[in-house]
Amino acid sequence: MLAIDARDVEKTFRSGWPRRRETRALRGVSLAVERGSIFGLLGPNGAGKTTLLSILATLLTPDRGTITVLGHDVVRDAALLRRRLNMASGRPSFLWSLRVGEIVAFYGRLYGLSGRALRARVDGLIEICELGPYRRVPYSDLSTGLKQRVALAKSLVNDPELLFLDEPTLGLDPDVSVRVRAHIARLRREQGITIVLTTHYMREADELCDEIAFIKDGKILARGTPGELKRQIRLGEVIALRLDPARVPWLAESPGVLRCVEVDGWVECTVDEAEKRLPDILRALHADGVVIRNVQVREPELEEVFVELAK
């Protein structure tokens, strides 16, 4: 069964006065999300991810298209849907003087919780989101990661069937990111919540999502399971080398190397698996008498994936 069925969604922002500026944020996006799945939206800045999420969450009215969320029309039944979905953003913001517990309780009351039920829900969320020690701390005194956890707690206060997460690990240190991702996976596993998230981190999408859509300039360029997409785009890792001499022509032909480019004096080789290929490459370079001044291994930038995708 589908949690979201969106067809040909279009949205143009018109802003500015007296000179009007038009931004076509979405240009005919269609999307289907299975109930109980985690769906990832990937794309560069300004691609339209937040716009799409906001439309699905009833915060923004689409210009065109039919959108069914949890079996209801997202525009006509917006009020009804708001009880059943929720959203957290990676750049959260709440009233500065309210304490963590008060923020969660405030939103809980808006969803009809009171008395003991409210207290139990707030306690539970504070525990799950590891906010116990901060319960009485004003929001403005929290660190970025803690604010994000408050946003997550708030987004779960109505026990949503559908949860939207806009860059949930933005600006978090790796340790906290790992925990947040584990938490998201648990929400789906234990409570069957359908989750739609946006992210700039490939690894995150890879680890969490059942299905991914790449969006750019308001259009979906590719979609599929992480595995399908990787095969489709030949996603790999990048080994960046600073060498003397700077150019080594045979590198591009080495086993496992998908392509090589030169950027600012670095040779960047995209390989299928860095861990497996790095020793061989270093050995070969050494044997060839090339001096290795620096080596870095990283995931490909999203942009590089898009360069591939746009072809």
């Binding site: 009833t58 915060l59 009880r83 929720n86 959203m87 709440f94 808006l110």
Partner: peptide, 8 residues
């Protein structure tokens, strides 16, 4: 936006 995401 959090405010108006809630059924208020």
């Amino acid at each position: 936006k959090h405010q108006f995401l809630a059924p208020i």
